[in-house]
Amino acid sequence: MSGVDRRPTMAVWKFASCDGCQLTLLDCEDELLPLADQVRISYFLEATSAAGPGPYDLSLVDGSITTPADAERIRHIRDVSRYLVTIGACATAGGIQALRNFADVAEFRAAVYASPEYVETLADSTAISLNVPVDFELRGCPVDRGQLLEVITAHLAGRRPDISDHSVCFPCKRRGTVCLPVAKGVPCLGPVTHDGCGALCPAYGRGCYGCFGPSGSTNLPAFVPLLRRDGMSGLDVVRVLRTFNTAAPEFAAASSALAEAERPPEAGQRDATGEPGPGQDGAAPRHRWEDE
């Protein structure tokens, strides 16, 4: 390319996650090459061996912070990023691995690894925004392809991304799906879940399971009885709130309140939905060094 490359630079970073959210970018089959005409993909390990130097105009961050080294790395990334967007439930709410926040991580480690001492990890899995300032948070487990492109194109055009904070009920009704709880008594997290998927599950006859986390306006104390009406036990409700956005504050508060109420006399360690563990008692993440 002759002359100065005026394209903005983009970087994609990965922390603890399944890779699905950054893969979403490679799943934009129609847009990938046109996108590369508009932005210089400077750092994206999954896609390229060429790692350009920072600073980067746009950083997309996938994954949550779970190790001391990652807590350090994200601070560096913030320093070299002009606009930092977290992509997906791990980066935005700690991901499913934040289930450890409600349990004893040492026990978790021992359950998976024969020699747990080799594995260095923090007690909590935390959202990026609890570690460094974030410019935009994109929800979803995984993020929606269209929304990811919207965030990038809006950034290129200097627009505000058209990403709504409202509930899954909005798109569900817009696409003309018949309401599952009302017409069939099927439990559905739609009324408290953040839109982004376009109300996918209900369109497949399945109640929403909350993979985009809480919407901008929830009323969980009024909502939980609805799940109970539609046949879920208290523990079922705790489980469904403790999945891919388990540490999202609204879901964590509701699940902890319920878990407390539902706690069996002998809550064994084998119950992953047991008592809230360390890190749930305050808003701020507490990083503790597990391996010394």
Partner: peptide, 13 residues
């Protein structure tokens, strides 16, 4: 307000 989920279903229908 204590009961309303602000989910928007009433307006959509």
């Amino acid at each position: 307000a204590a009961r309303c989920l602000t989910c928007g279903n009433c307006t959509m229908v």
